[in-house]
Each structure stands twice: as structure tokens, then as C-alpha cells.
């Protein structure tokens, strides 16, 4: 009885706190609306105009297509596909190579300079190279995303796999774990907090690279659509694309953090009790 009554105000207060902490969003929106209406600048349409355009252009479709319009499907789908393929490939290569390098001092002695050279190249500078290599079409964008995200993932995976606690490895050896078990059940989980730090960076990075690559050379995708609108001086559509990208980034990050919280729950728990 006491436990219940003690818990209630706590939860209520937490929810109220959550809602209150969101006050900044509507205030900022209203402020933006007021300022833009007041200065009447062509390049800064009020958010109401932008949101109406966002809705009309992409989210006013039939319920059968989840309210997406043809324009949305024609541009979101290719963008998302590239993003997903690029990110997954980058993760696979980054984590795979990173863990191998982290576990082998001999291998990393050879390859480390290469890794540090590779990570120092700003990925957008390679877009022209990939354009020549892959011509127009999806593979150029995918290549740009993979090249961009692979480095932070790899660097973190190397670090994570290299500094696995000595005692974890001793324990694995004492109990004669197989090589595969040692990798899957000891090294990878031990390195997971570091690996996830790299993955977290790569989520936002992949979105940035998707747009950059589409702005430079593409016939569809959100970046391409944005460029098109800009060419037609369709300022509200350009802004609508910016808002859309902001929302996408927010959604991707939130989803990632949810997954990370689940997978690394043990890590937070163990750190709290240390």
C-alpha cells in the first residue's frame, strides 16, 4: 500500500517533467513563425508554409501507401535503400576488420598506418572518384556512405577488441573455450560498448553522406529532389526537405539508441554497481 502511494507521485512527476521539458519546441516554432512573417524574406518561408508543403508534397498520399505520395516513394525509397545498404556494409566491414586488427598485434602493426591514412580523407572528396568508378546510379552513393562510415566504426572496433580485459581472456583460456566461442561470447561482448560508440557516430554520418552524394550525382533521392527544387527557386520545398532530413536523423538516432540501450543494458547495470 505504501509502496504504491509512494510510487504514484514519482511517476506522475516524471511524466510531467518530460512534457515540461518539451516546451522549448513549440516556443521555438512560434518564434520562428513570428520572425519569418515579420521580416518577409523570400528565402526564409514561415514554418507553417514549410509544413504545409511537406505534407502536400510527400505525406498526402493514399492510406494504402502509408499516406506517402508518388514523389515521396520515388525519392525516399532509393535514399533509404542506399543508406541502409551503405550503413550495413560499412558496419560489417568496419567491425569485422576492426576486431581482427584489434586482436592481432602483428596484423595491426602493418595495417594501422593505412587505417589512419584512410580515416583522414574527408569522404566527400572521394565522390568524384566514385562517380568515375561507378557512374551514375546507386553504387556511387553506397560507396560514398561505406567509405565514410567504415573508419569511425573500425577505429572503435580496433580499440574495443584490443583492450579486452586480460582476466576475461584468461578465463576463456582456462575453461578451454573454442575460438568461435571466445570471439562471439567474450571478445565481441567485451568490445561492444566501444563498437556501439562507433556505430552511433556512423548513423548520423551515413545520413550526411547520403545527402552529399545525392546532391552531387544522382537522378533520384531526397538530395536530388532538394537540388531540383533549388534550381526552380522552389524555396518552401527546399526547406521541407531540410525539415524532413532533420526528422529522419532524429528518428534514426532514437531507434538506434533504443536498440543500443537494450543490447548494452548489462553494461550500464555493471557500471552503476562498480
Amino acid at each position: 500500500m505504501t509502496a504504491v502511494s509512494a510510487q504514484r507521485p514519482g511517476v506522475a512527476r516524471r511524466v510531467a517533467g518530460r512534457i515540461l521539458s518539451l516546451w522549448i519546441m513549440p516556443v521555438a516554432l512560434v518564434l520562428w513563425e513570428v520572425v519569418t512573417r515579420w521580416i518577409q524574406a523570400v528565402y526564409f518561408p514561415p514554418p507553417s508554409t514549410v509544413l504545409v508543403r511537406l505534407h502536400e508534397l510527400w505525406f498526402s498520399g493514399s492510406w494504402r501507401t502509408f499516406f506517402l505520395t508518388d514523389d515521396a516513394i520515388g525519392n525516399f525509397l532509393p535514399s533509404f535503400t542506399r543508406l541502409a545498404i551503405g550503413w550495413v556494409l560499412g558496419c560489417a566491414v568496419g567491425v569485422g576488420v576492426g576486431v581482427a586488427l584489434g586482436r592481432s598485434t602483428r596484423l595491426s602493426a602493418y595495417v594501422d598506418p593505412l587505417v589512419h591514412f584512410g580515416r583522414s580523407i574527408p569522404p566527400p572528396t572521394l565522390v568524384p572518384v566514385f562517380l568515375v568508378l561507378f557512374q551514375f546510379g546507386g553504387s556511387m552513393q553506397v560507396a560514398t556512405i561505406v567509405f565514410g562510415v567504415v573508419w569511425p566504426i573500425m577505429i572503435n572496433a580496433i580499440e574495443g577488441a584490443r583492450y579486452v580485459d586480460r582476466q576475461y581472456l584468461d578465463t576463456a583460456q582456462v575453461f578451454s573455450l573454442s575460438r568461435l566461442d571466445r570471439l562471439r561470447r567474450v571478445i565481441l561482448p567485451a568490445a561492444a560498448p566501444k563498437i556501439f560508440a562507433g556505430l552511433r557516430i556512423s548513423v548520423s554520418l551515413s545520413l550526411i553522406l547520403m545527402i552529399i552524394s545525392e546532391l552531387v550525382g544522382s537522378t533520384d533521392g531526397i538530395g536530388h529532389r532538394m537540388l531540383q527544387a533549388q534550381g526552380l527557386f522552389d524555396i518552401p520545398t527546399t526547406w521541407a526537405a531540410i525539415v524532413l532530413l532533420g526528422l529522419m536523423g532524429f528518428l534514426l538516432n532514437t531507434t538506434f539508441l533504443l536498440v543500443e540501450r537494450r543490447i548494452l543494458a548489462w553494461h550500464r547495470g555493471a557500471r552503476r554497481t562498480d
Binding site: D165, V174, W266
Partner: peptide, 21 residues
């Protein structure tokens, strides 16, 4: 190498048990 029929109990249990399991 490590014999198959040998087990060890280490002093530092917190780093010998795996916190993710």
C-alpha cells in the same frame, strides 16, 4: 597450454565472471 580438466577460481570475481551473461 591450458589442460582440459582444470578449472580456476580467480581472486577478482568481478572481472572473471562475464557481466553480459
Amino acid at each position: 597450454g591450458t589442460p582440459d580438466n582444470l578449472a580456476v577460481v580467480f581472486q577478482d570475481y568481478s572481472r572473471s565472471l562475464f557481466p553480459w551473461m
